[in-house]
Design a protein around this nucleic acid. Structure first.
Lengths: 340, 340
DNA sequence: GACTGGCACTCGACTTTGAGGAGTGCCAAG
DNA sequence: CTTGGCACTCCTCAAAGTCGAGTGCCAGTC
């Protein structure tokens, strides 16, 4: 038996009421608060079906109904329209992001903004190195046997590493290397650089080859292997809203998960162009987050995507509002990046 | 009436038992677990005095006693010897810090280590720019009207800023500026640089002065005004140990405080040489942390101090152990920095 | 004077009991 | 298919009662 329109309407009403009140919702309360045009008894029958299909459940006999993960999923997919942002929110976003002075600043402001607007935990990934291009590479002599390698990406990210040279090297030679390296690598996607770095060594004059090889290996590390993704996090205090009721009694696992960068990256890092992804409860692969939902999306200048951002909260969250906010913030950040 | 030795011994026993069990401790249990050589009745009399003096209190009539903040303070100041670290802990520290590849890495490893060893929230301040010297300044042309200013400090910190030039500038001129700036500033304490930067502009050839002024202003921002302190945080999940019992029922205020960098810096940033500072409950100026204690100290290569680190936990914490761990970690990190 | 054993008393923690009520499922009738 | 009615379930809350840890005080002892 498939679900007719009224049953879907009942599900929507249940989700909305439960999200708003945090309490199991009963048939009588439902008909009172929504114009369903039928009696509580009818609603009860519908509820029985919805429960059988796995969209809602009773915490215990003689209690109201609560949406299941599947129920939220259906709600998100078919029953909710994305809310428009309020003018106040729009203004907040603009005000917050104006005046950011560099990439760090942009990311920090963004993550705080997201946390504040959604009243949940926000995560923002720094522009991924893997998706960036080399804007410039700099070699700074620290001593005769030590260099600082500084890589500046087009997304504004700057990475640096120390290079220990095998032998003292004149600063002219360093300048020389720098020129060669830049002419070879500037403008290239980081992902494409490894073969180019190899040719750097191959084409190098033999007497300088060991030194160049040394620089090249650190270069590779910096550009590709290490390829360390960075994150910013804010709003953990929001986890405590709604008491310990959300997250089935313990914040512990959630806080633990939030400390693992790898996990967070998995959550917000897997981005497909212009999609907003919603993971509800069990859909999260991470056990610790079975009781949480994650709304994430990609951002970047124009249509390209250079990183992800998102929020994490209880499964019982305002999905339409959250989705709208996440999208809007991502768009603004993308525009901001495009200006640089 | 002052406290004789046995009363102090009773206080110590109360603190130790309470920290271990998290439960109010009564007179009978005390004499059973510690060799006090007197009867419960005597201990009761001592307790009455200790309570009158404000070192312990009863959660309610007919419950055992619990140390007050003042009690912990007395315990820390006069009744506890710093514990020696276990060999396992020493090994853990060494193993953890070996293999750190750059400053970021050192700081991240340190903060995780601290959180893990103390089982509390750990905070590590990056080496403060204010206490660093300039190792090198680099100007990287991005376009003809844009430079990237990169500052490398002797502590390993690297800061970068974008400079918008008033007019297109030849790369030779940039090289020139770079040379001048470096000869003037390299090796100087960041705190001492502002007057030097001013002379940079003053001594500059008139036709280049506007450009130089522009660079100089960003330079000042980077070196001094912005002087942004950075922090790493780990172990927030440890706040949930001991249920919601610690922190008088709500993690909320604590989590909020942990999100404010300014607050954290206040907590661990005010360092005096070779002191370990312990703030207990009310001694914290931040209202949100009235129910928490903070153990912090400074670290740095040799005897100089370049930053702070510490842990935050419930007032009911193992002070001797925590103090020992914090000190040891600070020392190891200092040694590590000295090697670079 | 300090310590001790004894004793009455307090009061929170936990259990039991019972009333109240929200909510359900089912059924028969419209 | 919808609806009103009804019996039933079972949670919530409050009241009452028991239990026991822990105390304060006092009189007696060393």
């Amino acid at each position: 038996m498939s679900l007719d329109d009224r049953k879907l309407e009942v599900l929507r009403a249940i989700v909305e009421d439960y999200v708003a009140t945090q309490e199991p919702v009963g048939s009588k309360a439902l008909v009172e608060r929504h114009q369903l045009g039928v009696s509580p008894a009818t609603v009860r029958n519908d509820m029985a079906v919805l429960e059988e299909e796995g969209y809602i459940r009773q915490p215990h006999t003689s209690a109201g109904r609560v949406p299941t993960d599947a129920g939220y999923r259906l709600f998100v997919d078919r029953l909710s329209r994305v809310k428009a942002l309020s003018p106040a929110e729009r203004r907040a976003i603009e005000r917050f992001l104006v005046g950011a002075v560099d990439l760090d600043d942009v990311v920090h402001r963004t993550v705080r903004l997201l946390a504040q607007l959604t009243r949940q935990v926000a995560v923002v990934q720094y522009p991924s190195l893997a998706r960036s291009s080399v804007r410039h590479l700099e070699l700074v002599p620290i001593s005769t046997t030590r260099l600082m390698l500084v890589m500046i990406a087009d997304t504004g990210r700057v990475e640096q590493r120390l290079v220990e040279l095998p032998a003292p090297t004149a600063s002219d030679d360093v300048l020389d290397m720098r020129r060669t390296i830049n002419s070879k690598l500037t403008g290239e996607k980081l992902a494409d650089t490894p073969p180019l770095v190899q040719t750097l060594v191959d084409e190098c004059a033999p007497e300088k080859r060991t030194t160049m090889a040394c620089v090249a290996s650190v270069l590779l590390e910096t550009l590709v292997e290490r390829s360390e993704e960075r994150l910013a996090l804010a709003g953990t205090a929001n986890l405590t809203r709604g008491g310990v009721l959300d997250f089935q009694g313990s914040l512990r696992p959630v806080l633990e998960a939030l400390e693992e960068e790898v996990i967070l990256l998995k959550l917000i890092g897997e981005v497909e162009p212009s999609t907003t992804r919603v993971r509800i409860g069990d859909e999260n692969e991470i056990d610790n987050l079975r009781a949480a939902s994650v709304v994430s999306t990609g951002y970047g200048p124009g249509k390209t995507i250079v990183g992800g951002l998102g929020v994490l909260g209880p499964t019982r969250m305002d999905y339409p509002g959250t989705i709208a906010t996440v999208r809007a913030v991502a768009r603004y950040v993308g525009d901001l990046l495009a200006q640089n």
